[in-house]
Simulated assay, not measured.
Amino acid sequence: MPTPAPSLTPAEVAVRSGLSVSTLHYYEKEGLIRSTRTGGNQRRYARETLRRLAFIRAAARIGVPLADIRATLDTLPDGRTPTPADWAALSARWREELDARIAVLERLRDDLSGCIRCGCLSLDSCVLHNPGDGYALEHPGGNRLS
């Protein structure tokens, strides 16, 4: 029977993952990672937690909210650690949302470029200084840039 891989302390995981111990505790509280406890009630993390943290960090870096990351990780059987194939399949779900955010940013950039060329900065008609203009009457709280 193979011996189980030794577990890691929170400090060891923090050093290896580049995250703070408090972040590890937060992720655990949010259900993103799990730990076990020693007889002395100290946390220990399985080595696979490092791969799970890499997945979480990559998803968070592209702007995926932690709740969405947790929901995605919850789709894995028995809470197992994502594999590279899992990343490919799971991250494909986020591509459409990321493309939409990129489109919004491109429109914002283009409006900014137009504003720089125009130079008017009119409080009556500028889409940057007065994004609600007439649109706000039809859509309270609306913003054409988003």
Score class of each variant (00 low, 15 high):
residue 36 T to N: 10
residue 36 T to W: 11
residue 37 R to I: 02
residue 37 R to Q: 08
residue 39 G to R: 12
residue 40 G to Y: 06
residue 40 G to V: 11
residue 41 N to P: 03
residue 41 N to M: 10
residue 41 N to Y: 12
residue 42 Q to I: 11
residue 43 R to H: 11
residue 43 R to I: 14
residue 43 R to V: 13
residue 43 R to F: 09
residue 44 R to F: 03
residue 45 Y to L: 04
residue 45 Y to K: 00
residue 45 Y to G: 07
residue 46 A to I: 00
residue 46 A to R: 02
residue 47 R to C: 12
residue 48 E to C: 12
residue 50 L to V: 01
residue 50 L to G: 04
residue 51 R to M: 13
residue 52 R to A: 02
residue 53 L to K: 04
residue 53 L to I: 09
residue 54 A to P: 01
residue 54 A to Y: 01
residue 56 I to D: 00
residue 60 A to Q: 09
residue 60 A to H: 00
residue 60 A to Y: 00
residue 61 R to C: 11
residue 62 I to D: 05
residue 62 I to F: 10
residue 62 I to S: 06
residue 64 V to Y: 00
residue 65 P to E: 12
residue 65 P to M: 09
residue 66 L to A: 04
residue 66 L to V: 10
residue 66 L to H: 05
residue 66 L to N: 02
residue 70 R to C: 08
residue 71 A to E: 11
residue 72 T to Q: 02
residue 73 L to S: 01
residue 74 D to G: 08
residue 74 D to H: 11
residue 74 D to K: 11
residue 76 L to M: 10
residue 76 L to R: 06
residue 78 D to G: 08
residue 81 T to G: 04
residue 82 P to S: 00
residue 82 P to L: 04
residue 82 P to V: 09
residue 83 T to S: 15
residue 83 T to R: 14
residue 84 P to W: 08
residue 85 A to I: 09
residue 85 A to D: 14
residue 86 D to Y: 04
residue 86 D to Q: 07
residue 89 A to S: 14
residue 89 A to D: 15
residue 91 S to A: 15
residue 91 S to Y: 11
residue 91 S to D: 13
residue 93 R to A: 15
residue 94 W to C: 06
residue 95 R to V: 15
residue 96 E to M: 14
residue 96 E to Q: 14
residue 96 E to S: 15
residue 97 E to L: 15
residue 99 D to I: 04
residue 100 A to M: 05
residue 100 A to W: 11
residue 101 R to G: 03
residue 103 A to K: 06
residue 104 V to N: 01
residue 106 E to A: 13
residue 107 R to G: 05
residue 107 R to E: 05
residue 108 L to I: 15
residue 108 L to Q: 14
residue 108 L to A: 14
residue 109 R to E: 10
residue 110 D to A: 14
residue 111 D to W: 07
residue 111 D to S: 15
residue 111 D to H: 12
residue 113 S to C: 12
residue 113 S to I: 12
residue 113 S to G: 12
residue 115 C to Q: 13
residue 116 I to Y: 12
residue 117 R to G: 09
residue 117 R to Y: 11
residue 119 G to R: 04
residue 119 G to Y: 07
residue 119 G to K: 00
residue 119 G to P: 02
residue 120 C to L: 08
residue 120 C to Q: 10
residue 120 C to H: 12
residue 121 L to I: 05
residue 121 L to E: 12
residue 122 S to H: 06
residue 122 S to W: 05
residue 124 D to L: 05
residue 125 S to Y: 03
residue 127 V to L: 08
residue 127 V to A: 10
residue 128 L to Q: 09
